[in-house]
Simulated assay, not measured.
Amino acid sequence: MTQWRFPPEWHMQDWLWIGFPHDGDEWPGFLEQAQVQMAAFASAVAESGQQVRLLVRNEANEARARALCSEKVQIERRTYGDVWLRDTGPLVMTNSAGGRIAKRFGFNGWGGKYLMDGDQTIGAEIAADAGLEIETADWILEGGAIDADGTGLVVTTEQCLLNPNRNPHLSREDLEMRLQRDLGFNRVLWLGEGLINDHTDGHVDNLARFVAHNVLALPKATGENDPNAHIYADARARAEGAGVVVKSIPSPGRVERDGRIEPASYMNFAITSRLVVVPIYGTPHDADGVAAIAELFPGRDTVGIMADAILAGGGSFHCSSQQMPRI
């Protein structure tokens, strides 16, 4: 039997898919600036020497992207709703024989909250166009709900994976079995809650990220009014209790918009073959957050790019991208 492996994100990549914002209803008052920030992300990765495939929705959206992006960015017109390809795109696995396969899962709009045209089909479409065989699993999972260290260890949150709006018929043990059967994970690190007001019901890629084998980056509260301080502390206790090494990253602190706490996080960074792109928000902690993440990736350049407008739509750079691992 072929042994498929889910490579960690720092594995070399052939290209990066990125979604380009197009829907003003998703970014009320922020669409144009969100497009500028997403274009800056795509351009930075492309200028680093890695291929970028930027998905655009229609002719006007394509024209806007071309006006904002580096000429090195490859633009593809597709039908998709939200830009969060981490969740709607394919999860690509590799094997020692030089093969790749796309794993697809059920998608219900993050628990029925955001159902948009194209989001249930875009993953299979771009996988098929890349020449990948596709296997579809019988349960709901978004890519941002998990993060892997390349040794069979995966981290997730109870708030998301055990949420009754995803797979109400599956127990914790059922989910662990499916994670092993469909993605090859033989150990699961269960964290508790995700960030306050995270639209995804606590996706782990906004809270905790593996940066090496058995090494997990986690935010550390900054300021007495950091709204997620208890969540960070609980995640650290669970990780260390499981024997995982924890690296602390300063959090952005308290970030609000119109009196509402925003799920701002430096942890939504994107790792590419040559570059790590960290979302920043204009807080006094941005430079420290980028510097702390840069220390974890000495073989790559690390840059901070403003993502406050993208956050207004519910995510950031990691959420909007999906990598094609190199064989």
Rank of each mutant, 00 (worst) to 15 (best):
R57L: 08
P90S: 13
T151K: 03
E295D: 14
G194L: 02
R100I: 10
W84G: 00
F6M: 12
A148C: 13
Q120R: 13
I18V: 15
A221V: 00
E32R: 07
T200Q: 05
D147G: 02
F41Y: 09
A309W: 12
V245P: 00
D205I: 00
A63E: 15
D198F: 11
Y281F: 15
Q13I: 07
V255W: 10
S70L: 06
A239F: 00
M38P: 00
F30A: 15
I310L: 15
G150L: 11
I126W: 04
H230T: 06
L195M: 11
N268M: 04
G131Y: 02
G202T: 01
G241N: 11
F105P: 01
D14T: 06
W84A: 02
R238F: 03
V155D: 00
G314M: 15
T136E: 15
D14V: 06
E26R: 11
I261F: 11
A39D: 03
G24M: 08
W17E: 02
Q120P: 01
R300W: 11
G243N: 06
M267G: 01
R77V: 13
G106R: 12
M1Q: 10
A97K: 12
A237M: 11
L132E: 05
N214Y: 05
E76Q: 13
L153G: 02
A148W: 04
G99I: 08
P28F: 05
G118A: 06
A46T: 01
F185N: 07
Q322N: 13
Y114C: 03
M93C: 13
R66E: 13
N268L: 07
G89N: 09
Q322L: 13
D201Y: 03
T272A: 15
V246H: 00
S248P: 00
L195I: 03
I140S: 01
Y266E: 03
A127P: 02
G98L: 06
L161S: 03
R78T: 04
V155W: 00
A294I: 06
L179F: 08
H199Q: 12
V303M: 09
V245Q: 08
D25Y: 02
Y266D: 04
C319R: 09
A307S: 15
I196K: 13
G282Y: 11
H169R: 11
A34R: 07
F20D: 00
A145H: 06
D147V: 00
S265V: 02
Q120K: 08
A239H: 05
T283C: 14
V73C: 14
A309N: 14
A264C: 04
